[in-house]
Every structure is written in C-alpha cells, then in structure tokens.
Design a protein around this nucleic acid. Sequence first.
DNA 1: CATATATTCTAGCATTGCTAGTTTGTCAAT
DNA 2: ATTGACAAACTAGCAATGCTAGAATATATG
Lengths: 198, 198
Amino acid sequence: MKTGAKVGISERKAREREERGRRIVVAARTIAERDGWASVTIRRLADEIEYSQPVLYSHFQNRDEIVGAVALEGFGELAGILRAAIRPSSTPEEAIEGVATAYLDFAFARPAMYEAMFILPTGLRFARSDTPTQLREGFGAMATVIAPFAQDVDTATETFWAALHGLAELERHGRIRPAFRSHRITLIMQMVSGQLQR
Amino acid sequence: MKTGAKVGISERKAREREERGRRIVVAARTIAERDGWASVTIRRLADEIEYSQPVLYSHFQNRDEIVGAVALEGFGELAGILRAAIRPSSTPEEAIEGVATAYLDFAFARPAMYEAMFILPTGLRFARSDTPTQLREGFGAMATVIAPFAQDVDTATETFWAALHGLAELERHGRIRPAFRSHRITLIMQMVSGQLQR
DNA sequence: CATATATTCTAGCATTGCTAGTTTGTCAAT
DNA sequence: ATTGACAAACTAGCAATGCTAGAATATATG
C-alpha cells in the first residue's frame, strides 16, 4: 500500500524534494547577486540544479515566486541586521542613527537582494493574516527605535521606513549624491528626535 | 545638390520625422497608462504609428530610450505641479505640506508615469552637465520650500525628496497603510519644520 | 533617363517564460 | 518474475519579446 510499512521512503523523498527546492532558491540568489536578476532564467536555474525546466514549476508557480522566495530570505536577514544594530548601551538618538545606517548598508551591500525585496514583482503579501513573520520583524526593529520619539508609533515607523527606502532607491539610481549619505542620515536622526538645528 | 534650392523639402521631412517621433512617445505613454509598461512592446508601438518595427530604432536606440522619453515628460509635468503647489499666501509649513501632498498625488494618479521616472531603466543621466532642465526643476521646487528650514539646502532637499519617494513606493507596493497617508505627510511636515510634538 | 542615396519593409534570429504530451522510473498486487 | 497503475522527469515546442540583416522601394541628383 502507499502508506505502508516503509513510511521512511516517502519521508526521504519529501526531504530530497525540499532540498531541491532550497537549491533552486540558493542558485537564484547566487546568480542574481553575481550577474543581476535578468540573468536568473528558468533555463539557467535548471542547468544549475541539473534538472529539466518543468521541474522548477513543481516547486514554484512561476519565476516571480522564486524571486519572492529569495526576497523572503532577505527580509529575515534584514530584520536580524536591524535588531543587531540596536546596542543596549546606545542612547535613543544613537539607536535611530544605528538602525538607519545599518538599513542603508544592507541596501547597498546587497543590491540584488534589495531589488527582490522592494522592486521586483514577487507575489509576497504584506499586511495580511498570512504574512510571514520575516516581513514583520524588520518593521518591529524600526518601531523599537522610533517608539521613544513618537505618539503614533506605527505611523511614525512607516514614515521612518519610507525615508530610508527613498534614500536607498534615489542613491542607487544616482539621483542624489553618495558622498552626502551620512549627512542625510544625521538629518533624519535629528528630525525624528526633534533636535533639528536651524 | 543636397542642400540646394528646395531646402523646404528637407525641412518638411525633418518636421514630419520629428512629428513621428512624438507620436511614438505619445503612444508609449498612452499604452503604459492604460495597460502597463509590459504592454508597451515595439510591435504594438509600430502598429500604433502605422510603420514597421525597425523605424522605431531610427528614433530611439532601444526600448529603454522610449521609456526615458516618456519619463522626461513626466519630470517636466511634476516640476510644474510642484511649483503650482506653492501658494504665495501659504506659510512655510503649509508650503511643505502642499508640495508633499502634490508629489504623492502625482505619484498615485500617474503610477505608470512615476514608474518610468523612478523604477524602470531609462538611460536618463542625472547630476551631469548635460542633464535636461526637467530633471532639475522638480528638485528646485522642493528646495524652495525646504530652504527656510535648512542650513544645507541641497542635502535637506535630497532627504525630503527621499522621504516622499519612499512613501510613494511603499504605499504603491502595499507595504504601508493607505489610510494613514495624510498622517505621514503631517509627520514629515512637522519634522522638517522642527515642530514635532511628542 | 540613369544612378546614387535615403527610407522603409520583410523576414528572421536568439532568447524568454511556460506547458502539453511522452517517456522513464517506482512499487504494490498478482 | 510480471503486470499494471501511478508518480516523476524529460523532450519538444509554443507564443512573445527586443532587435537586426538584407532586400525592396521611394526619392533626389547627375
């Protein structure tokens, strides 16, 4: 019978299948970070995992879902980085600056990953009941450092996040001067903390 | 000879050619705003202007340049909208809020245009000697309302712009709550003007 | 009229995401 | 061992894309 004495076999198969899915995501990420997302084609991924193309579609509905899987990893890593940037010894102002700097460092150190997370179509669903925790944790880290300065923490965090995202995107596209990045961070920190000098 | 008595002919031809180029850009914009940029294909544009596909490549090097031409129009329009948002009777604080609101209204009313201006590859060159004026004027309008509150106007304007761009993008991607848009604008206005209540 | 020069078109290449339909492998029941 | 049913994977191909070489056509020049 199908689920008979040798249950271990189907479990092993499930593991191997899971492992193959992982290899697809790893390959997608690797290629994207080295050659850009345009080079992440189904054919190239199929070559990489040494299976034919249709196999990929038994793991993901379409290419966008593969990008989404990489993006999800990214959100998890970003959350960790932002949390780590909050030193217990730092003042509230320093905490803001630290998180802002860490956020932008992430964006510029991993442009392909950032692109998957915020630019490319991924099919990821935000602000839903089934939203993965990775998508919430980064927001939580930012909220932590914003809270001391805000009445409406959620709205203030959204605004802080938007400012960081805008800085990342405009600089990535060469619209603002890279040399003044730290000045802009300082400005945001002063504005949020209400210590703006003029 | 080539430039003989009938100079008018070649001038008429140049005009017609110019006109044909315009029609390409208009068609691209129209299709993009109705069906999205993915529907703006060379074949569809060729159909629209009733010429064969290779003709497009005598006007633009590639598809990206067509997107760029549309984006350039968009920068001109955005600049006008931002300037118009600065009412002479308004206080400096109101001016900031007005420009911010106008910016986001533009982004949400013309998503395809905004995408061409800020997301898609266009080949447009910023911060160069040959940078078209359209690309500078929008920045200028923002700088006008930021100047009363800033020491380093350029850096402060870059930061303000980044905040607006981030708000537009995160909301467009469903990452932040649309219902709180005006709250976030108020927050930015208060932060920039140093009137943050906490 | 003949010839050179632009202009425009036809036809096609290479690449993409995706899928239908077939082949191959697996495993329980005979 | 053989068979038959089911699952897994592959081959082959479709339709669409950006772009281009080379042929055909129109236009201007001698």
